[in-house]
Write a protein that binds this DNA or RNA. Structure first.
Ligand SMILES: [Mn+2]
Ligand SMILES: [Mn+2]
Ligand SMILES: [Zn+2]
Ligand SMILES: [Zn+2]
Lengths: 143, 143
DNA sequence: CTGTAAATGATAATCATTTTCATTTATACT
DNA sequence: AGTATAAATGAAAATGATTATCATTTACAG
């Protein structure tokens, strides 16, 4: 059940934030994309609709949306931050180390491992990250 | 099970790197500590022994040690990078998002998932990364 | 001991993210 | 609808981690 732009906007207003066209555009960019995005990626998308928006505004809005838990910041290693809609379907990635192509996948089952780890360590486990790396068919031919 | 300073030094030499006093000091700082450390933390420790070492050298050495898989870079969210000594075998991490404690674990089985993904995508899969995040017992009490 | 490529450290450059601050604007209230 | 006002915006500068440059030093093979 993905959060909609309308729901996010309502949540913002509920918490006393103003609903500006910039924020609307950012929310639209996030909800109309079903993968994770970094601040630059969101900025680029938003600018095609609303030239003149500042990158700062993107950062500020992401900070608010994260605090309200409407989006979440993924702990993926990388130079930039990664955000995804809070309720978007949990999935993982298979990345080509040659060309950067990313394939989403889902349907794995880590719950048994998670339970075992939790039992043995005493941790409450909140999230996980699973990434595969390899070579796509195109890049196999090249190398 | 933990790599020793001697083993790390030997591995460096084996790969053709020179064994400088700066590198010795960095290796000692890492092996004599059993938490994970960030570049600044290592720099601070090393400087108490060897004033005048440059932070740049710490970064460069960490880069080499990571490439040789003698230490590993943890994908924990945070402003600075986090490194920890590698154990000898392939393993993964369970990280406390409260205090940063890291628990190594091994013995999972991702081979079926890997084969399925490879079959469906045409990728040759070369590696994977699996990280769990949660709260350790100490941090559960605090929050 | 010597020669040489590798390593170091001072310094400057990058690049993502934050701060500052003057200007604009959403919205609650006449 | 018009107004007041605090919040929001964007240009520009600041910050802080990481990287690149380059002149000098040093490990170490021969
Ligand atoms: Mn994805
Ligand atoms: Mn480890
Ligand atoms: Zn590829
Ligand atoms: Zn903890």
């Amino acid at each position: 059940m993905r959060l909609t732009a309308k729901e996010i906007s309502a949540a913002l207003k509920e918490h006393g934030y103003k609903l500006t066209p910039q924020r609307r555009a950012i929310i639209k960019a996030i909800t109309s994309n079903n993968d994770c995005l970094n601040p630059q990626g969101i900025y680029t998308r938003v600018r095609s609709q609303r030239a003149g928006i500042g990158l700062v505004t993107v950062y500020r809005t992401l900070e608010i949306l994260t605090r309200l838990e409407l989006i979440c910041e993924l702990p993926a290693g990388g130079i930039q931050r990664n955000y995804t809609l809070s309720a978007s379907e949990h999935h993982h990635h298979l990345t080509c180390s040659g060309c950067g192509t990313v394939i989403d996948f889902t349907g794995h089952n880590l719950i048994d491992l998670e339970n075992k780890l939790s039992r043995e360590s005493g941790f409450i486990i909140e999230s996980h990250m699973l990434e595969f790396f390899g070579l796509c068919q195109g890049c196999q031919k090249v190398s």
